[in-house]
């Protein structure tokens, strides 16, 4: 794989992880919305952020487990670092919802509105990824 190919591969993985993370956020928001009347903004921030961090770790680690079997040997340190770095986009994807819920905690809007806005930012994020991916497709 040439340098440009390798770079495209990483970029593709990052988009994939961002989509994955965004859908993860939407699942968390759906769960929070189910009990919106008793959910506080801080609960929502914790669920979204901890959920994203846990998914990041789980996703990178599961990738490395698979790689270990495929290689039939230890995974080099740079591959481990790369797996965690690429999957970091899962955490990045949780930033819009986190910001929206922090603002809800600061009283800018209600928790229920915040959760709707979190869903809105997620749908917009997915659309933006779609635009970026569409630009590179042939």
């Amino acid at each position: 794989m040439g340098h440009a190919d390798a770079e495209r591969h990483v970029t593709g993985e990052k988009y994939a992880e961002y989509v994955y993370g965004t859908i993860g956020v939407m699942v968390a928001v759906a769960g929070l919305n189910a009990g919106a009347h008793d959910v506080r903004a801080t609960n929502a921030v914790v669920v979204v952020l901890i959920g994203a961090l846990a998914t990041w770790f789980a996703h990178a680690f599961s990738h490395l487990v698979g790689e270990r079997v495929k290689r039939q040997g230890p995974v080099p340190r740079e591959r481990i670092v790369a797996a965690f770095a690429t999957s970091w986009m899962i955490v990045v994807a949780a930033v819009p919802a986190t910001v929206v819920m922090v603002l809800s905690g600061l009283g800018l809007w209600s928790v229920s509105t915040g959760l709707s806005l979190a869903n809105g930012t997620a749908v917009v994020s997915l659309a933006v990824v779609g635009v970026l991916v569409g630009r590179v497709s042939v």
Binding site: I23, A127, V129, G134, R135
Partner: peptide, 30 residues
């Protein structure tokens, strides 16, 4: 590059996002 190849990912990802929100809204009414 056709228009569809440019817009299909926007359409697909937006539909997925909107479907999740719609399912959520539906579940909320139950």
């Amino acid at each position: 590059m056709t228009l569809w190849s440019r817009v299909r990912y926007v359409v697909i990802l937006t539909v997925i996002g909107t479907a999740i929100v719609a399912l959520e809204a539906g579940a909320h009414r139950l």
